[in-house]
Computed example of a mutant assay.
Amino acid sequence: MQFTMKSATRRNVFKGGAALAFAATLAACAPMASEPDVVDILASNDQFSTLVAAVGAAGLAETLKGDGPFTVFAPTNAAFAALPAGTVESLLLPENKDTLVSILTYHVVPGAVTSDQLAGQRLDVETVQGQTVHINATDGVRVNKANVTQADIIGSNGVIHRIDSVLLPK
């Protein structure tokens, strides 16, 4: 009788181990739900706090948390600080929301575009706002007159390129 119980116990252990291995394999194949999107990445970095505040004031956070993919040319706090005095505060007022939305969506290109896809090229690319930005990637990467100071910050729904000035639509 003892032999039978040991065999049964051993079978249960093997079945349990097989079930755990199968569950682990499934978990490894499942997409990571916790991978940060472009908004989460920007919000987690203090150098983008002005951009994050502007995205919130414009009501664009949920859009940028969507499926995408998006390419975001993200100006730093220093880039916003270089605008004429009072500009940022004025843009954050509710009555200037349309202007703010226009400026912010001018920083977003549909699709996930990494620096290696741009290397050596000069392109005019349409933004979500509807106008085009000029990208010159023949010596570093410039977007209009802004320099990309950090490229290829990858999120679950797109890519972020840090830039050193705010892009203003024409």
Rank of each mutant, 00 (worst) to 15 (best):
M1I: 06
M5G: 04
S7H: 13
A8R: 13
N12H: 13
N12V: 14
K15C: 13
G16T: 14
A18H: 10
A18L: 14
L20P: 12
A23H: 07
A23W: 03
A23M: 10
A23L: 12
M32L: 06
A33Q: 14
V39N: 11
A43W: 06
A43M: 10
A43P: 15
S44E: 13
N45W: 05
D46V: 05
T50F: 02
V52Y: 03
A53C: 08
V55K: 00
G56S: 13
A58C: 13
L60P: 14
A61S: 15
D67C: 08
P69K: 01
F70H: 04
F70E: 12
P75K: 04
P75Y: 02
N77T: 02
A81V: 10
P84R: 00
G86D: 15
S90I: 10
L93D: 15
E95Q: 15
K97G: 07
K97S: 05
K97P: 08
D98C: 08
V101Y: 06
S102G: 15
S102C: 11
I103M: 11
L104R: 02
T105K: 07
Y106A: 07
H107C: 00
H107P: 00
V108W: 09
G111H: 00
G111W: 01
A112S: 02
S115E: 09
L118M: 10
L118C: 07
L118R: 09
A119S: 15
G120F: 02
V125L: 05
V125M: 01
Q129M: 02
G130Y: 03
G130D: 14
Q131M: 08
T132D: 11
V133F: 06
H134Y: 10
H134S: 09
A137M: 07
D139N: 12
G140A: 09
R142N: 12
V143G: 03
N147D: 14
N147C: 03
V148K: 04
T149Y: 01
T149G: 01
T149P: 00
Q150W: 04
D152G: 01
D152P: 00
G155L: 10
S156W: 06
V159Y: 12
I160D: 12
